[in-house]
Amino acid sequence: MASVFDVTLVCLILAVGAWSTFARLTFSAIVIFIVYGLLLSLAWVRLAAVDVALTEAAIGSGVTGMLLLNAVARLRSTDAAPTPSRSSVNIAAGVFCTLITASLAGLVLVPPQVPVSLAPSVMESLGQSGLGNPVAGVLFVYRSLDTLLEKVVLVLALIAVWSLAPDGLWGGKPALRPFPQRDSVLIFLARTVPPIGIMVGIYMFWVGADEPGGAFQGGAVLAAMWILVMIAGLAAVPPTSSHALRLALIVGPVVFLAIGILGIFLTGTFLAYPEGYAKPLIIAIEATLTVSIGVTLAMHVVGPPEKEWRS
């Protein structure tokens, strides 16, 4: 039954969502959006979907919020006059959203008689892989092809971001334009938080095999730590042509693919694990993916190579 906490949470999510939509300044809209994401991850916890909650907090709220704040800072520095949004577009968007919400609401209010799910059969076969977390089972055992291709999407998206650089700067350094000042609080945080953060990131990946967590959430935490150190000026941003950087970007997908191909020779099937070795192999994949995801996400946030920029 709905508790007072749940009802309050739902009201709060609705209110914050509306606030973010109607906020006048883009900057405040984004900050509210980040809060909205965190509240949403609480809702996922209440629905007992802790993996989803962690992902929502790390990616939906954290990385996305960072990217949006970055975009706002860039828009400000180019002095682009904000074009007022046309009311016809707003009305069309409003009608469209209402239509979709109404049809979804219609389904939620009359749910199907027998809820069907693959969850029981996921749990039934999970023992063979030695994993304890069904989400990890779906990601790395049953539907590993999806996970592999998603990682390729992530790398491709980074190439897309880099492609926005001018020809002459290809391979150069992202300039961290939106973060010109290095104040002492930031530097203090960048010195003290990362040791703990890195531990948390590694822990999240490590427990992912049996408990909620995993490569994506762990990688997002590692990315946040690296970004913090870079914007505080304690570590240089690597040039995008750096060999070490490029290897870090692809080590996860390469190991994943290699183990998948190894499966052809050892078991006769692509992306199948030899009996008894499933868990160690999956942990090897997840460990390298954590590195690759962390580096890829951080490079997404710092953006394409740019000219050095001084305020």
Partner: peptide
Amino acid sequence: IYIVGGWQPPLGI
């Protein structure tokens, strides 16, 4: 037809 990872649908792909 190829069953990826040896897991038949609906569990696999």
